[in-house]
Design a protein around this nucleic acid. Structure first.
Length: 683
DNA sequence: GAGCACTGC
């Protein structure tokens, strides 16, 4: 196995033979990519203070401005803020230039909560104002702004979207900046479409889109309303503002490798022996691969979402003198968190993605090749503190065959909530809504069908009152929303609030680093034969009573303190909605029939029957399913179940199951099971 | 009898 650096003599030519021999003692041979290109690019770069006036000019003159930033520039994350000019200071310049006069506000959206809060904090301190006054932020569970004082508001994209419910034209804003638009998060995409609509009614609204290079044209075409051939009449402009990052030498494999996990480990040892000091990060696709990698003899540090906070924090710790840190990461380190001191990047070239199939209604979790944009982003992690090197565990040829950017989330998600939201905004024909990249029609139709079956939409596809309207306001999936709104019929709102909150958070149970037997034992303490929903209810109740909401107690019981705290916040938020909708907040005590019936009233479409061989079939479509090993019902006998979701990995697995009586289905959803009523045996 | 990237309201 050998690496090749484009720009040097190609492998296999005679000149290269000697060099190859010289390095043949290394298990992995890298060849270095010329950095000429980036040097040229750097020469073209303008100092940012000059660009500032240029940006102001463009925003003044054009309705929409696309700002193309080099990956790694202006990125603000957990642990650091980019070393040079920060794109996120643009709102500050606009403020100084008068865009906030007359009580107008500048909004800047982020796909992640931490980014919104940290940037707001930084800008406030630079402007020497108190955070929450002139400069503020708004994220879920945390409002830090003043209606009268705040002129610059940083917020998550989901929050700005939510504001369109209250003020569909977002009339208080003079400029709206969508940052990290290239990530194409679900809410970013919805906002992009809505902002275009708003701009038709409010031509004075200025939109700024900040994105990575590769997508700039798509944004330009989407917002350009000039239909003549005269491009001088375009109402969109593009400006490229590239931040200071250090050059990164790219190395490709000469030949494709069989096993990238093994190749990654070999590369680590090679770097360790041959390269100057500097920490290493390895990008892999999942937990299994990472756990297999961290058995290395030098101290590697795993990082993925399923780890506890304590374990995650280890990657930020300073390594002892003379020790090289090796971080083994999932995509969590591609954009969500930044680890300082990384000089070497090893990129396996793959990523695990979630996709929703409109045909089966199932989600799948599969490993696919990364996009060029992702590969660039990963490589960029090496050039933050000094010139770095990126080792790609694939050939240069395969790099060029990668797609430019990943498939936007909106094209591979369950759109039930999206459709509901658009309907609530008065967009009746959701199939014709102007999305920048429209989702496949089947996804929209699937969502419409589900909403119809939940009775959130009527025969004409209009939102029903009050059910459809209330579901659209709820910050949960419509099926979860339904069980909350129906809870009054079973006197179990308290229980449904907890279950809905617990279902909305991930990784409630954390695997301890030492033994998995201990983990199973702990989990069994909360398990009940009725299934996972009531098990989750027990976990939460134990957390607030016996556990006294303490991190220590969570640790003792292999529970994720962060996840449970979040569930607590979500529960409080959902409770406020129920109170507003006049749903009585009652408890049914230990009446699990009431709880399970209530669950069935929202999840009747997700019902399955056990087969003789222990597998399951959905009642409606006869699709084969299996119980996920993480379910408490995995080792139990459960003839009829409802499930929260299906995720297809090696098999189609149902996750979060509850045992039901099939009679409830015809009772609660006769419209859905009418035709097949005869085939439902009475129990 | 076998396992799950990451966000967001």
């Amino acid at each position: 196995m050998a690496f090749w650096k484009p720009g040097t003599v190609a492998p296999g030519t005679s000149v290269d033979r000697e060099a190859e021999k010289e390095s043949s003692e290394n298990i992995v041979t890298f060849v270095n990519l010329s950095s000429n290109l980036s040097v040229q690019q750097q020469r073209k770069r303008l100092p940012i203070f000059k660009s500032r006036d240029q940006v102001l000019f463009l925003v003044e003159k054009y309705q929409t401005t696309i700002i193309v930033g080099q990956t790694g520039c202006g990125k603000t994350t957990h642990t650091d803020i980019c070393n040079s000019f920060n794109l996120l200071e643009i709102p500050q310049y606009l403020h100084e230039a008068g865009w906030t006069a007359g009580d107008r506000v500048i909004a800047c959206t982020q796909p992640r909560r931490v980014a919104a809060t940290t940037v707001a904090g930084r800008v406030a301190s630079e402007m020497n104002v108190k955070l929450g006054e002139e400069v503020g932020y708004n994220i879920r569970f945390e409002e830090c702004y003043d209606l009268n004082l705040t002129r610059i508001k940083y917020m998550t994209d989901g929050m700005l979207f939510r504001e369109t419910f209250l003020d569909p034209l977002l009339s208080q804003y003079s400029v709206i900046m969508i940052d990290e638009a290239h990530e194409r998060s679900l809410y970013t995409d919805i906002l992009l479409g809505i902002l275009k609509k708003i701009q038709k009614k409010r031509p004075e609204l200025r939109i700024i889109i900040s994105s990575a290079t590769l997508d700039a044209e798509v944004f330009y075409d989407f917002y350009n309303t000039n239909s003549t051939n005269d491009s001088s009449k375009d109402n969109v402009s593009i400006i490229s503002l590239e931040g200071r990052t250090f050059p990164v030498d790219i190395h490709y494999l000469e030949e494709p490798c069989q096993d990238y996990v093994e190749a990654a480990i070999q590369t680590v040892f090679d770097i360790h022996v041959k390269e100057p000091p500097g920490d290493i990060i390895i990008f892999l696709t999942g937990r299994d691969e990472i756990d297999n990698t961290v058995v290395m003899k030098i101290k590697p540090l795993p990082i993925y979402a399923g780890l506890s906070s304590e374990q995650q924090l280890e990657v930020f710790e300073q390594t002892p003198f003379n020790t090289r840190k090796v971080v083994v990461a999932t995509n969590i380190a591609e954009a969500s968190i930044t680890i300082e001191g990384i000089v070497y990047v090893i990129d396996c070239g793959f990523v695990k993605v979630r996709a929703f199939s409109p045909k089966t209604g199932m989600e799948s979790l599969t490993v696919v090749p990364v996009s060029k944009a992702s590969a660039q982003q990963r490589a960029g992690r090496a050039g933050r503190v000094m010139p770095g090197k990126a080792y790609r565990l694939y050939t240069e040829d395969s790099f060029y065959r990668l797609r430019d950017s990943s498939i936007p989330e909106i094209q591979r998600s369950n759109l039930a909530q999206v459709v509901l939201h658009l309907k609530a905004l008065g967009i009746d024909n959701v199939l014709r809504f102007d999305f920048m990249t429209p989702p496949p029609a089947e996804l929209m139709i699937r969502a419409l069908e589900l909403l119809y079956s939940l009775r959130a939409l009527d025969d004409y596809g209009r939102l029903t009152m009050p059910l459809g309207m209330q579901l659209s306001e709820f910050p949960v999936d419509p099926m979860l929303g339904k069980i909350l709104l129906d809870s009054y019929q079973f006197q179990c709102a308290e229980e449904m609030l907890t279950i809905a909150a617990m279902i909305s958070v991930q990784n409630v149970f954390v695997t301890p680093s030492n033994s998995s037997a201990e983990f199973e034992d702990e989990k069994r303490k909360f398990a009940v034969e009725e299934g996972d929903h009531i098990t989750l209810l027990n976990v939460f109740n134990a957390f607030i009573t016996r556990g006294k909401k303490s991190a220590r107690w969570c640790h003792q019981h292999c529970l994720n303190f962060r996840a449970l705290s979040r569930a607590l916040s979500i529960r409080q938020q959902l409770k406020k909605y129920l109170e507003r909708f006049d749903v009585p907040i009652e408890s049914c005590g230990n009446d699990t029939v009431k709880i399970r019936k209530c669950l069935s009233s929202g999840y009747f479409a997700h019902a399955a029957k056990m087969q003789l061989d222990g597998s399951f079939r959905t009642i409606r479509d006869n699709v084969e399913l299996h119980i996920h090993p993480s379910s408490v019902l995995f080792t139990r006998n459960a003839p009829w179940v409802i499930f929260h979701e299906v995720v297809e990995t090696t098999k189609a697995f149902m996750r979060e199951l509850t045992v039901i009586d099939p009679v409830w289905l015809t009772e609660l959803a006769p419209h859905f099971y009418e035709i097949k009523k005869t085939s439902l045996p009475t129990h």
